[in-house]
């Protein structure tokens, strides 16, 4: 993923301005910043859900917006909402997404994932009756369903219970070895030390810090973040 001079304007207010960011295969980049810093807007542009106003954005080797459809085949997106139909079951929701992404041997893959996120026993209940944490675990399964090469996560730990969060952390840890990349927007700065290789801090739509996390503990990452947004 490569962003060069990327910007986006809502009305007359620039939400993201002149962002330069490269994410290599196998790299996990955490983006932090105060509310309104432009983190989610940048993530939505990477997810092809929002067009860039300025600059060039390349995702999985495809320049957007022209290559958006090809790029989408390799993007896994986890949002605040589970992005699931409440009046379908977890299994039926995953079947919809398996059809959209062209997942082969979908039934077996869906069962495997439901088992991994510990939803197999509730696979045929309506999403409407699941707890928020369960719905977010379903979202995790949806994101992983098609084996994406780039994960884009917006506040991924916010609604996950402890088991779901552990599963996500394990998935992020495994990414380093299999060459997948992740961009994680988060307010939980302490987690960055364990889930990311790089810390990017945004403020007023611009990147103010982009540096490695290696060797820092949660408290040091928090201190560095506070220093950046002060």
């Amino acid at each position: 993923m490569s962003a060069s001079g990327v910007g986006h304007i809502y009305g007359e207010r620039p939400a993201v301005a002149d962002v330069h960011l490269d994410v290599a295969a196998g790299e996990r980049v955490a983006i932090a910043g105060p509310n309104g810093a432009g983190k989610s807007t940048l993530l939505r542009m990477m997810a092809t859900l929002l067009r860039t106003g300025t600059g060039t954005l390349t995702v999985l080797g495809e320049e957007l917006p022209g290559g958006a459809r090809r790029a989408r085949c390799g993007i896994g997106y986890l949002a605040h909402d589970p992005l699931a139909y409440l009046d379908l079951s977890p299994r039926q929701n995953l079947q919809v997404y398996a059809d959209l992404f062209g997942v082969q041997d979908a039934d077996r893959r869906i069962d495997d994932l439901l088992d991994r996120v510990d939803l197999i026993a509730r696979a045929d209940d309506l999403v409407r009756v699941l707890s928020r944490g369960m719905a977010q675990r379903l979202a995790l399964a949806r994101m992983l369903l098609h084996g994406p090469r780039l994960l884009l996560l917006d506040e991924p730990h916010a609604s996950l219970d402890a088991a779901g969060a552990a599963l996500l952390d394990a998935e992020l840890a495994a990414m380093r070895t299999d060459g997948r990349a992740a961009v994680i927007v988060t307010h939980e700065v302490e987690r960055i030390a364990s889930v990311a290789d790089r810390l990017v801090v945004m403020r007023r739509g611009r990147i103010v810090v982009d540096e490695p996390v290696a060797g820092r503990g949660p408290a040091q990452v928090r201190a560095r973040y506070e220093e950046c947004i002060a």
Binding site: D87, Q92, D99, L100, F101, G102, V103, Q104
Partner: peptide, 29 residues
């Protein structure tokens, strides 16, 4: 983790979306 994903066929996407809409309608009426 590897998953077999082909460039999705539009016919499968179309059938999946229609099935989803009809399921939702059958459920909620």
């Amino acid at each position: 983790m590897s998953t077999a994903v082909n460039r999705p066929r539009w016919t499968r996407q179309l059938a999946g979306l229609i099935r989803k809409d009809l399921r939702l309608e059958l459920r909620t009426k």
